[in-house]
Amino acid sequence: MTDPAPDPDPVSVWHRLAGSRVLLDGFHALKHALRFGAEVPVAVTTDRAAALALAGALAPDVRDALDALLAEVPESTYTSLVPRPHPTAVAALAVRPERAAHLARLTRLPRSTPVVVLDHPRNLGNAGAVIRLAAGFGATGVVTTGMLDPWHFTVVRGGAGLHFATAVERLAVDELPPGPLFALDPEGEDIRGLKLPDDALLAFGSERSGLSGELRARADHLVSLPMRPQVSSYNLATSVAMTLYHWSATGGAPHVP
């Protein structure tokens, strides 16, 4: 039998830290955060045995860490701590990585994998899905411009905790990292005829209005994805996936530690 988590009052710890930490919403977000070195001071679940069984089946590499960390709380307590209960009934708070370290990673040259730039994104779930894709391809990072907070809990939920596997920051267009900027645009050159360099910035406009004038003016290249006539557009995450796959399939290295 597994001993209960040692913290006698995880709920008071949660209330003390909430608002200054990143909410990890669900088992998979916590799993990924632990895998990629996040500092997690508190984690709760309504069923420790079920959560640890899930870890044993899907993530044995983090089971011991979860065993030491997870505290069981009543369902009513759990639902009071999170904005929207997750089907796995697991939640945690993590320390956000230092901005200075992320900026150093984003600006360091030479760079062996691209940076994804989301120009004025609007949809929190789409932004999370992009971060998940970028982490999967080993991208250096994801930068957003505009008002959307890329560390909003809904974005972190959509990214399944993979914010901790890449550098995620919000910057102004004039603060973007160095490197040739390839911006996706229907009027651009067909991507199938291009090889995207490893140090590229790959920029995608908002779901509604496309690229901002400021980013378009900063772009070195406009690039288009193949699309059937009369189809309006692709989903943002789909566009990013197609572009990163093209980069990796034409010489990029998707499995970068």
Rank of each mutant, 00 (worst) to 15 (best):
residue 102 H to K: 14
residue 96 R to S: 11
residue 78 Y to C: 05
residue 77 T to A: 09
residue 79 T to C: 12
residue 80 S to C: 06
residue 111 R to I: 07
residue 72 E to C: 02
residue 109 L to H: 05
residue 91 A to V: 02
residue 77 T to L: 12
residue 73 V to Y: 00
residue 79 T to D: 13
residue 98 E to A: 15
residue 77 T to R: 13
residue 104 A to D: 07
residue 87 P to S: 10
residue 97 P to F: 08
residue 82 V to L: 01
residue 71 A to P: 08
residue 79 T to I: 06
residue 101 A to C: 03
residue 89 A to M: 15
residue 78 Y to M: 06
residue 84 R to C: 04
residue 107 T to G: 08
residue 80 S to T: 01
residue 109 L to E: 14
residue 95 V to Q: 10
residue 77 T to D: 09
residue 108 R to L: 12
residue 112 S to H: 05
residue 113 T to I: 07
residue 111 R to Q: 02
residue 85 P to S: 11
residue 90 V to S: 08
residue 96 R to H: 11
residue 71 A to E: 01
residue 94 A to K: 10
residue 100 A to I: 12
residue 108 R to T: 14
residue 87 P to C: 05
residue 74 P to Q: 12
residue 98 E to F: 00
residue 81 L to M: 03
residue 84 R to I: 08
residue 78 Y to V: 02
residue 91 A to W: 05
residue 112 S to D: 15
residue 71 A to F: 01
residue 112 S to C: 05
residue 87 P to F: 12
residue 80 S to Y: 03
residue 94 A to L: 09
residue 101 A to T: 13
residue 88 T to D: 04
residue 96 R to T: 04
residue 89 A to V: 12
residue 95 V to R: 02
residue 97 P to G: 12
residue 87 P to D: 10
residue 89 A to K: 14
residue 108 R to F: 00
residue 95 V to M: 01
residue 87 P to K: 14
residue 75 E to R: 14
residue 73 V to M: 05
residue 74 P to E: 13
residue 85 P to N: 15
residue 73 V to N: 07
residue 79 T to R: 14
residue 112 S to I: 13
residue 83 P to T: 07
residue 73 V to S: 03
residue 109 L to K: 06
residue 94 A to T: 08
residue 90 V to R: 03
residue 91 A to I: 02
residue 105 R to I: 10
residue 72 E to F: 02
residue 81 L to T: 00
residue 85 P to C: 09
residue 85 P to R: 07
residue 104 A to C: 00
residue 77 T to Q: 06
residue 109 L to F: 02
residue 113 T to S: 15
residue 89 A to E: 14
residue 85 P to E: 08
residue 92 A to M: 12
residue 72 E to Q: 13
residue 105 R to V: 14
residue 72 E to R: 13
residue 79 T to G: 00
residue 113 T to Q: 13
residue 114 P to A: 10
residue 82 V to T: 01
residue 109 L to N: 10
residue 76 S to A: 15
residue 104 A to V: 14
residue 86 H to D: 15
residue 79 T to P: 01
residue 72 E to G: 13
residue 87 P to T: 11
residue 104 A to I: 02
residue 79 T to S: 07
residue 90 V to G: 11
residue 89 A to W: 10
residue 103 L to W: 04
residue 94 A to E: 04
residue 95 V to H: 04
residue 111 R to E: 00
residue 115 V to W: 02
residue 93 L to C: 05
residue 109 L to P: 05
residue 86 H to I: 09
residue 84 R to W: 10
residue 92 A to W: 06
residue 112 S to P: 12
residue 98 E to Y: 03
residue 84 R to P: 01
residue 84 R to A: 09
residue 89 A to G: 10
residue 107 T to C: 13
residue 82 V to G: 09
residue 99 R to Y: 06
residue 93 L to T: 08
residue 106 L to E: 01
residue 113 T to P: 01
residue 87 P to L: 12
residue 102 H to E: 08
residue 99 R to T: 15
residue 93 L to P: 06
residue 97 P to Y: 11
residue 100 A to W: 07
residue 75 E to Q: 15
residue 113 T to W: 00
residue 101 A to R: 14
residue 95 V to E: 14
residue 75 E to C: 08
residue 110 P to F: 10
residue 82 V to H: 11
residue 80 S to Q: 11
residue 75 E to S: 12
residue 85 P to Y: 09
residue 111 R to K: 08
residue 74 P to F: 07
residue 102 H to F: 04
residue 110 P to S: 05
residue 80 S to F: 02
residue 83 P to Q: 04
residue 88 T to Q: 04
residue 88 T to R: 08
residue 111 R to S: 03
residue 86 H to S: 15
residue 98 E to T: 10
residue 86 H to M: 06
residue 99 R to F: 07
residue 98 E to P: 09
residue 102 H to L: 07
